[in-house]
Structure formats: C-alpha cells, structure tokens
C-alpha cells in the first residue's frame, strides 16, 4: 500500500510506549496518518487501541516515544497542550456532553471560551453543525433529554465546532442501542467523505469497509496489521487477526 510520505503526515506516532503499572499497554507503537485519511483501529479489548486514541490528545500520558501533530510535538502540559487539544476533536464512548448545559451551549462553549468567537457567531455556526448532524431541533434541550444516538451526534457537532485538524473517535457506537448506531455512523461517513482526517476505534466493520482508507489491527499493545479494509477483512495475515475476525464475525 502507498504509505503517505513522511512530510505529508498530519499525525506521526513514533515508538510510543505506555505502562499501566506492570502492564505494558502500548509497545513501540508507530503510526502515520496523512491529511484526509480515515484510519480504523480495531482489536480485542485490552489491546491498547483506546489508550492509543486517548494518548493522541494526551488524555493519557505516554512513557516514551513521540506524538507529533501537524509538525508539532504534543506539549506535556500548559497552554500549549490546550491549544493542541482544541485542534484535535474527540468523541467519547459515553458522549460526555456537559450535563449542566443545553445542547446549543455544549457546542458553543469551546468556540466562545477557546476560539474567542462572539456568542452570536458561535451560535450561528453551532446551529449549522447541529443541523448537519440532524439535531438542530433539540438545541435548547439538556443532554439527559436526548437519546444516546442524538447525544453522540451532538458530541460530534461539539468537536466539529472547534474546526479540528483531526478527529478521534473512541468507540463512538459501543454505548448505543443497536437501532441508534447507524444514525451516528451515517454522520461519521459523511465526515469522512468531506475529507476529515479521522482515527476511529470501533468494531463497526460496515463503517470500516464504507469509509476507512486503512485498518490498523492491534493486539496486546502492538500494531499487528496495517492495511486496507478489504485486505484486512478478506485476507487477514496474522493468526491473531484471523482469530479476532472469526470471533466478531460469528459473534
């Protein structure tokens, strides 16, 4: 497969290691993602895929190695880290919408407080985004009044409102009832088609086949395979990938 040239990479992860106590959760992980690329990270639970995703905006610290976004290494703390996080959108498994704010306020908080937009400008943009994810009519409600699928779409709009260079999705559909998964995946597929750079930790093979350029398979803290979706699903190389696929396919 044509790996993007080094200079083209938006995200460069280089020999990253991470331990949780005695557990070695990320082992010499290296990954490059080009602008506009959609990478699905897949693997059994405990394989380190969520940790990797969270390390990219430093919600998890790393022990060694480097993570570089758009040419800049992630600062360990302070204002520089906040600036970087503003450029990296994050969508969580459990949505994590701000429970005390309305849907509209959830989407405008970052643009007003971090991007210093006026309230009116932030609300105008927020409504465009909420419309795009199909929940504009819920703008004045609180998150608890929405279904899980609606909440997750608001969470995507909240991340998009920061105009991120890169979007991270940490199992975005795993906490959803089955009938709500597709409404979220459709939004994500739309984003991918519009050229957003995305790293998606998910087990949704339909999404991987439809929208992903690459599938990265992780097991025991290592990247075991890094290939196209059709290669991975139809002709997996490693025994671990074969075993994993047989489990989720018969699941």
């Amino acid at each position: 497969m044509g790996q993007p040239a080094q200079t083209d990479s938006l995200l460069v992860i280089e020999r990253v290691n991470k331990h949780f106590g005695a557990l070695h959760v990320l082992k010499e992980v290296s990954l490059r993602v080009a602008p506009g690329e959609v990478v699905v990270v897949i693997g059994p639970s405990g394989s380190g895929k969520s940790t990797l995703c969270r390390a990219i905006n430093r919600l998890e610290t790393i022990d060694d190695g480097t993570i570089t976004i758009d040419g800049a290494e992630i600062p360990s703390e302070g204002a520089g880290l906040a600036t970087l996080r503003a450029d990296v959108g994050m969508v969580f498994q459990s949505f994590n919408l701000f429970a005390h704010l309305t849907v509209l306020e959830n989407v405008t908080l970052g643009p007003i407080k971090v991007r210093k937009l006026s309230k009116a400008a932030a609300e105008e943009r927020a409504l465009v985004l909420l419309n795009r994810v199909g929940v504009a009519n819920q703008a004045q409600k609180h998150p608890a009044q929405l279904s899980g699928g609606q909440q997750q779409r608001v969470a995507i709009a909240r991340a998009l409102a920061m105009e991120p260079k890169l979007m991270l999705f940490d199992e975005p559909t795993s906490a959803l009832d089955p009938e709500m998964i597709n409404e979220v995946l459709d939004v994500m597929i739309g984003l991918a088609k519009d050229g957003m750079t995305m790293i998606v930790v998910t087990h949704e093979m339909g999404f991987a086949r439809k929208a992903a350029h690459r599938v990265v398979f992780m097991a025991d803290g290592e990247i075991v395979e890094d290939t196209t979706p059709s290669e991975f699903f139809d002709r997996p190389n490693s025994p671990r990938a074969k075993e994993f696929l047989s489990k989720i396919l018969t699941g």
Binding site: N57, L59, A79, A82, T83, R85, A86, D87, V88, G89, M90, F92, S94, N96, L97, F98, A99, H100, L109, G110, K113, V114, A155, R158, A159, M162
Partner: peptide
C-alpha cells in the same frame, strides 16, 4: 464523572476553565 473534565480538556479548555465552567457548576 471524570468524562466531563476530559471532554472539557479535549475542546481546549485549560485547567481553570475546566473547573470553573464544567466541573464546579455540576
């Protein structure tokens, strides 16, 4: 829930903003 602070940090809010705008009001 810790996810509230994580979400606040992930949209670029600093520590003080995270505490004052998201955590304390809840």
């Amino acid at each position: 829930p810790v996810g509230q602070a994580e979400a606040a940090r992930s949209i670029g809010l600093g520590f003080t903003q995270t505490v004052m705008l998201v955590v304390l009001p809840q």
